[in-house]
Design a protein around this nucleic acid. Sequence first.
DNA 1: GTCCGTTTACTCGGATAGTCGCTGTCCGAGTTGTTAGGG
DNA 2: CCCTAACAACTCGGACAGCGACTATCCGAGTAAACGGAC
Lengths: 155, 155
Amino acid sequence: MKLSQGVEWGMHCATLLAQVPDGGLMRREALAVHYGLPEAYLSKHLQAMTRAGVLQATSGPKGGYRLARPADEITVLDVVRAIEGTAEPFICQEIRQRGKGASSPDECRLPCQVNSVMRSAYQAWEASLRSVTIGELVTRMPKSVLKRNQRLLSA
Amino acid sequence: MKLSQGVEWGMHCATLLAQVPDGGLMRREALAVHYGLPEAYLSKHLQAMTRAGVLQATSGPKGGYRLARPADEITVLDVVRAIEGTAEPFICQEIRQRGKGASSPDECRLPCQVNSVMRSAYQAWEASLRSVTIGELVTRMPKSVLKRNQRLLSA
DNA sequence: GTCCGTTTACTCGGATAGTCGCTGTCCGAGTTGTTAGGG
DNA sequence: CCCTAACAACTCGGACAGCGACTATCCGAGTAAACGGAC
């Protein structure tokens, strides 16, 4: 139960891209420099976010990344799932049906309660992440930071 | 973001130990056979649960494991944390303070919003797991299974 | 001056090693029941 | 017959390899701008 550090990178990059004026782009290197991250490895996560449909990439000169949708329509969960994948953290292996004390298939009509509890917790986690958008995160940032970013991004 | 399979093993073993009459014990081998699990590896997880204070181990002949507390006072979260550890899944590395666009320490008086969102989601996950006890899981099991276990455990 | 083709430089994407933690296994330390001997 | 002490067997605990996933990096494929020449 550990999240990849790429989640933090992806989240901050998404919030930064949300501050880029209108349809502007931002190069991979600019993102890396802004947060002091290794550019080569950051590309791996940006790539994943692009595949997941969170970012949109443009090749060639004047190319770069942009948000694929308005920042208010991208949830934190979207970013996390883009980087961490969509697989559930708990995978029930139905050990109740194995071994000496195995339950019959008839007794397993109802889903394994252990699995149900774990799934409920996961859904609560997802719901919490889904309730916040990238756009909201931007508005919560200190105004001095937003101003500085506006200045840096226009240059 | 992936849970160890040991969580499933630990959960089922805990529910089974909750069905042992009064202060009875259960050997490691008996637990492994009941669910068809490799005894050697299962010991690793039982060990962790013992260290965490969820189980209580007795050495020597007639030894074995028992629940350290009444089943109604052991939450699912207790078992999960015993096996997975108590470290938070998201560890904020404060990249907002690094790089060209670094925020000043004064601007970081408030906690990183990304970190706050991730922590809230984790707390929601924990709350969900804390709301269910091992005792409750036992009552939700099919009665035919409980009967069979009673018979197997008395022998 | 305008249009077109070539060149060129720049961007992202995928293929490639390195390292940490979970997976899987074994044997040793500690404890308790047992048993043999003496009183 | 009872008590004691050594023995033996059984249980859990920690130390030891194996493997997959995240970490970290590089170079190549593709693209669009820029430039030079022809009309």
